[in-house]
Design a protein around this nucleic acid. Structure first.
Ligand code: ZN
Ligand code: ZN
Ligand code: ZN
Ligand code: ZN
Lengths: 121, 121
DNA sequence: ATGGGAATGAAAATCATTTTCATTTGTGCT
DNA sequence: AGCACAAATGAAAATGATTTTCATTCCCAT
């Protein structure tokens, strides 16, 4: 595993905390930074592993990376403009735990996301 | 625009109402049906336009097509052996609806999945 | 200085999806 | 049947994101 190149994280921040690998790469190029696309991908993967960013999908399937606090939470994402609201998942946490117990699963985690159109779209 | 080849829809149904274009194509091949991958993609697109199926994304970005009106459910997946249990998501349905309303979102959908180790693993 | 592991990036490989385009098929008309 | 024309089909090429390969460069501890 490789460690994340700090310039990638800094660029993601500058991009508004929301961008695809390709966009980050092009942004860095435009600003005269010398970096390879491979390194951008590797750095983003590493940041995802470290739970510093998380990854969503655009409608066209492209992965977008988003800065993310480490407290466990879920997202409400607008399909139109990409706006994201971090939401609390109390009900889900309980649901996941109950369902897992009911079927004898242990060491359980979960993913949950809501997507739709925000009031502006 | 082309109309959907009915064998594609029939195969999607037979697949459990949930499959990617590639999977449907391979399935039809295995069953000796003669069809081109292009036609599978075109048919699925047409079905999406007609709102007969809807489309989600796997974690890896591959598009999966799902029969609308299919009994909506969620999955409990074993990280060890891959065993999957279909579970009811009553609590989540409510949670998603409440959260969306609270933030003024419309046309909302959601994904939710639980993963862990099953009793055999 | 030197050896070894980590980081880098160019180029090739992969893989889903889309586009092109020539061919086949279907349908209505004579 | 014979013809015209539109729709459907699918093979092959193009596209575009992401991953893999691999040779080179960096960094650091001895
Ligand atoms: Zn919006
Ligand atoms: Zn949660
Ligand atoms: Zn298991
Ligand atoms: Zn649900």
């Amino acid at each position: 595993m490789s460690r994340s190149n700090p310039r990638v994280l800094s660029t993601l921040e500058r991009a508004g905390g929301f961008a695809s690998a390709q966009e980050i790469y092009r942004l860095m190029q435009r600003e005269g930074e010398s970096i390879g696309l491979t390194t951008v991908y590797r750095s983003l993967q590493s940041l995802v592993n470290d739970k510093i960013v998380d990854v969503l999908r655009r409608d066209d399937g492209e992965a977008i990376y988003r800065l993310c606090g480490d407290a466990h939470h879920h997202h409400l994402v607008c399909k139109g403009c990409g706006d994201t609201v971090e939401i609390e998942g109390g009900a889900i946490e309980k649901w996941a735990k109950v369902m897992a117990e009911e079927h004898g699963f242990r060491e359980v985690g979960h993913t949950a996301e809501i997507f739709g159109l925000c009031s502006k779209c």
